[in-house]
Structures are given as structure tokens and as C-alpha cells.
Computed example of a mutant assay.
Amino acid sequence: MADDHTHVQDFFTPRAADWDSRFPDDGPAYAAAARELGLRPGGAVLDAGCGTGRALPALRAAVGPGGTVLGADLTPAMLDAALRAERGASGSLLLADVARLPLRDGALDAVFAAGLVSHLPHPARGLSELARVVRPGGRLALFHPIGRAALAARHGRALSDDDLRAEPRLAPLLADTGWRLVAYTDEDSRYLALAVRTG
């Protein structure tokens, strides 16, 4: 488990300081995706793998001042960047592994996860843990501000059907971990998979 953490932290720590400046135009896409969760005032939501907290202001706007917004990330440097960007004002930041969250069963109405699935060392374990902390009927948004093909092109790779984010792979993975995929969008301008907590 420690080796898994080290790999993720080794990737994100040197990128934390300039992460937001590398993707300066993503804000509206994050806000639009957060709205897809259907949160209500007073609700409780987690941004899993929150990074620099770009989704936190939109999640706070959705649940209002009486709601609960949490941002969890494994990389201290990312949470430090979120604080420097003053996003801690929108939610409570937790240094935590999304596969072992310090939350009670069914505590949340929804989870927002941007770019998370591809960084989970054990995707089924992580998605099962997210299901544990969401009430039945609650929602999960797996988001990326660009689609799979555009992201592969950006990294000089071919698009692969083995990608966990591909619908034929993602739907059964979600079903096995307590979720039901209800909407799937994979366009150049965004990737968004919405799922509902079963049970």
C-alpha cells in the first residue's frame, strides 16, 4: 500500500505548484460537471482526489453555506496548492487515501472525482470505498475536462479499449462496486460518467 501511495505522490508532488496554470481554462467545465450531481442545499459531497481543489467552489455553490464539502487528496503538495488558491474556504481539506476514507457509511450525498480512476492503484477497492460512504441513491461523477481521445492525443498515445474509463470496461466495474452507470459522455471537450449508488 505504501508503494502505491509513493507512486501517486511522486507523480503529483512536482506538478502541484503549477498545476492550475497548466490548465487555466478548466473552471467552467468543472462547474458544469459539479452541477450534474444534482446536489441540493444542505447536502454533503466529497471531491475525491481533489488535487488543488478546482471543483470545491462549484460544489460549495451547489450545497450552500449549510452543506458539507470535503476535499480529500493523498498528496500534501496538492492540498497546499489548494490552500494557496484559497479554495480551503469552500470546503474542508483532508489528507486521505480515497480507498480508506475517515467517514462513516452513507455519510455523503455524492462524490465528485476528476481524473481519479486512472490514478487508483486498485480501482475496484477505491470505487467500493466511495460507494461505502455514499447513501443509496447518491451519485458519483467521474470527470475529466477533456475526453479520452483528446487526452490520449495530448500524451502521444493511441486510444485504448483497455482504458478503465471506456464505457464497456467502466460499466461492469461500477456495477461490481456498488454503482449503476446512468449517463456517459466522452467528447473532445469533456468526459463525464455519472453513476448512482445501488442498494
Rank of each mutant, 00 (worst) to 15 (best):
A16F: 00
L94V: 07
A175D: 14
P14T: 04
L120A: 11
G91R: 05
P41Y: 05
D47Y: 06
T185Y: 00
A141M: 03
L108G: 06
L46Y: 04
A141E: 00
A166E: 13
A16P: 00
A72E: 07
D161P: 07
A55D: 10
A175L: 13
L74N: 08
H7N: 08
P76C: 12
L181I: 05
D18R: 06
A166T: 09
V98W: 09
G27T: 06
R135M: 13
Y30S: 13
A44P: 03
H144K: 04
L94G: 02
G91P: 06
T185W: 00
C50S: 13
Y191R: 02
V45D: 03
T6H: 14
T68R: 15
L79C: 12
G42L: 13
L130S: 09
P57Q: 11
D176T: 04
G53M: 09
A166V: 03
P121I: 08
G156N: 08
E86G: 14
T68S: 15
R125V: 15
S21Q: 15
A55C: 12
G88P: 05
G38Q: 03
L70C: 06
A166Q: 14
A34H: 01
L159Y: 09
G106D: 12
A158D: 15
G138L: 12
L46P: 11
G91V: 09
H122A: 15
R22M: 13
T198R: 14
F11N: 02
L95N: 00
M78Y: 01
H119R: 08
S160A: 15
P14A: 04
A61Y: 00
G43Q: 10
A72K: 07
D161N: 10
L194C: 12
L108W: 12
L103Q: 11
D186H: 03
G49W: 03
R15E: 11
L173N: 08
R180P: 01
D176A: 15
G38H: 04
G147S: 08
D73Q: 07
V45F: 11
G147Q: 11
G64Q: 08
V69D: 10
D4Q: 15
A72R: 04
V133E: 06
P168N: 09
V134W: 07
A149Q: 13
A166I: 01
L103G: 08
A33C: 12
P24V: 11
L140P: 05
R15D: 02
A44Q: 05
L56H: 03
G138F: 12
L103K: 08
A195T: 04
L74M: 13
